[in-house]
Design a protein around this nucleic acid. Structure first.
Lengths: 227, 227
DNA sequence: GTCTATATCGGGATAGAC
DNA sequence: GTCTATCCCGATATAGAC
């Protein structure tokens, strides 16, 4: 059935196990066992466990981010210099992720759950790598959003983008986290419904009234005890 | 300076290391080293590494959730049966967490970062424990929100609550995650500003227009290939 | 390129003196 | 209640036959 080569089998097995257990808790023995390949194959094909981890991310992330950039560029070309609607921008960025997350068969769902979690706690050796993969995309989408929401300060947009990433991460990890708080699970199996729910939530958040921020002190947030 | 007993020193050190590295990657030797206690002390005081992990969560979580319940009950008593404003409810639930997260000195911040991440990927032996700790709180807040938003279906509220948890988690993990996507960091050091930003985002999301959901099929989402 | 066998290391846990 | 010393296991990685 799965007629792929050793290298691919290892990557698939690793992806799944990393998602279920994290890198640290996953052993090469588990991976090679699940992939039905020899223990030594990992070091032969990837050189080390860390290199394997990086490759698990790389093969999907570069593709995902390329999709996002292409879509955004297409929309911007269509608009011919006019700002895009926020909903369109979110649709491209998060839609790509949700689409991948909806791919239960091909392992996309597994990967997105892994990504969401890793993102919050990047082990030192993944952090630099992730930053590199994301740099271009974030820059472009941030710019598009700023242009799209002239009334909203760039800093606020950035934070809201960050919050949205969090919401998406939890949305995708759904089953994992929901069953903690929800005694009886709710659907979770309908990607389209999830997509619609998340988008409306995000748009609501993105367009919310600006928070009333107290004028921030130049630097010293705490007055010295001597008045 | 830190004049606390062995047990407390171990808990503090473990909390910090777990947050930085995860449980799996953290060794008892690191913990006892950082706490400046003997290696055998962990097993003496807690029985096992797993029990230590649970205790790290328990000591802060029960307190946090008690605070939430007390606050909510106080508000509900004040209102005398009338529904609460959504903003008040969110303020209680997330405010308690953010307040704890703002406590840089006492380790509250560290703990909340740990919690946010664990929540998405509960190791089997923590999941049951977390569910138990949360059951009562979630039930009460869910009920309050449903009462507070008569126009919104309970299922939608549940999802939005879930999204909000994700947003908060990322908000608190701020530095960790932001520096991945943001080449140059943004403030992140101002808890009050973060609080205000997050609240306005969440309220916007919670009150967003309902998503247009296609009537969901009874069960078979995929038609059989035989027409 | 795939296997077996093994080197080397560091993990959690415990026994038993103090 | 705290220490030292140690057991036992399973981890990554590699050497070398096939």
């Amino acid at each position: 059935m799965t007629e792929i080569d050793t290298r691919g089998r290892i990557l698939d097995a690793a992806e799944l196990l990393f998602t279920e257990q994290g890198f640290e808790a996953t052993t090469l023995r588990q991976i090679t066992g699940a992939a039905a390949v020899n223990l030594a194959a990992v070091n032969y094909h990837f050189g080390s466990k860390e290199a394997l981890v990086r490759e698990v991310f790389r093969r999907r992330l570069t593709w995902l981010n390329q999709q996002r950039l292409q879509e955004l560029e297409r929309l911007e070309a269509e608009a011919g210099g006019a700002p895009l609607k926020p909903s369109r921008i979110l649709e491209v960025f998060f839609g790509a992720a949700l689409k991948m997350a909806a791919d239960t068969e091909g392992g996309g769902r597994t990967f997105m759950r892994l990504l969401g979690r890793t993102y919050t706690k990047p082990s030192e050796f993944v952090r630099g790598f992730l930053a590199e993969e994301y740099a271009a995309v974030i820059e472009r989408f941030k710019a598009a959003l700023i242009k799209s929401l002239p009334g909203v300060p760039a800093e606020e947009i950035f934070w809201r983008f960050h919050f949205m990433l969090g919401a998406m991460s939890y949305a995708i990890s759904g089953a994992d986290a929901l069953h903690v708080v929800a005694p009886d699970a709710i659907d979770d199996g309908d990607p389209e419904a999830l997509h619609a729910r998340l988008m409306s939530f995000m748009l609501g958040g993105l367009r919310a009234p600006l928070p009333a921020l107290r004028a921030k002190p130049a630097k010293p947030p705490r007055v010295s005890k001597a008045a």
